[in-house]
């Protein structure tokens, strides 16, 4: 059962991919005679304020977050690998420049940067494109932290005996990198990928909660969580509308599973 977190994640992804069959109501259909109703046979998690099926919205929203967060993490880790390795491999000047830029990137208020980028996007952008861009931007902005770790890792490898031997044998730097360095930093990159995943999922959730992620009517974890930000929540028992908690429960579960999986990988490496 060591692989339980990964198995559970895979099951979740599979369920999300089956959303069109599991939730035939669809995420945008407004049943205006069933506004904010509790769970019923037709609406397993009830409906939202516009009469849309919460279960369908949860499945479709999770599908987006679960598919696009890994893509963003992959972009970010790829950039980190290239930039980090370049910094470690290159001369002092380029290394200093890269460190300087990564410091700048780390000190940027990413939320405001994202707001600016979202503001500069064309208005008639389709909801599905807007979410892809949101995650892409998250991926493009997330390279700095992992790049520094990759740089440190590559520098460590560069000091090892087998790299000295490779140099002494006259092996070209590119071959040294692909043949001897890249395989050795792979666990580092995988770990960075798993670390980035929950960060991107939560970043999208933050943006969505501010109303700046996916545009209506498409759901995402972020805009589903917005339902919790209701004035009435203070007036009722926290569990009176337990179905509203479904996105947050799922979000916490996915992030926890990712953490468990990452710890297992760390342990095994």
């Amino acid at each position: 059962m060591k692989r339980l977190p990964e198995i559970l994640l895979a099951v979740l992804v599979l369920v999300m991919l089956c959303a069109p069959w599991l939730a035939p109501n669809g995420y945008e259909k407004q049943s205006r005679d069933f506004i904010a109703v509790g769970p019923t046979k037709d609406f397993l998690l009830g409906t939202d304020a516009l009469g849309r099926d919460r279960f369908a919205r949860l499945l479709f929203g999770s599908r987006l977050s679960l598919l696009l967060a890994p893509a963003a993490a992959a972009v970010s880790v790829f950039l980190a690998a290239v930039i980090g390795a370049l910094a470690a491999f290159s001369g002092k000047r380029l290394e200093s420049a890269i460190i300087f830029f990564s410091d700048v990137a780390l000190s940027l208020p990413w939320l405001f940067l994202l707001l600016t980028i979202r503001g500069a996007m064309p208005l008639d952008i389709r909801p599905e494109v807007s979410i892809v861009i949101t995650f892409l931007v998250l991926g493009l902005l997330g390279w700095a932290g992992p790049a520094r770790i990759v740089r440190a890792g590559v520098r460590l490898i560069l000091k090892s005996d087998y790299i000295f031997q490779a140099k002494a044998m006259g092996i070209a730097p590119s071959r040294t990198f692909f043949r001897y360095i890249l395989p050795n930093i792979k666990p580092l990159l995988i770990a960075q990928f798993w670390i980035s995943l929950p960060v991107f999922i939560l970043s999208e959730a933050n943006l969505g909660a501010l109303g700046l992620s996916v545009s209506e009517p498409m759901p995402s974890w972020g805009n589903l969580l917005k339902e919790l930000e209701s004035q009435t929540s203070a007036l009722e028992h926290p569990l009176a509308n337990w179905q509203l908690l479904a996105p947050i429960v799922l979000l916490v579960a996915v992030v926890s599973l990712l953490q468990l999986s990452q710890q297992r990988l760390k342990g095994s490496s």
């Binding site: 516009l50 503001g119 208005l123 008639d124 700046l212 545009s215």
Partner: peptide, 20 residues
């Protein structure tokens, strides 16, 4: 979102852009 759904009935596609 309601305008979006209403206008869809006569074949008009509306995109909603929320911004700061």
């Amino acid at each position: 979102a309601m305008i979006q759904a209403d206008l869809r009935q006569i074949g008009i596609k509306v995109t909603v852009a929320a911004m700061d």
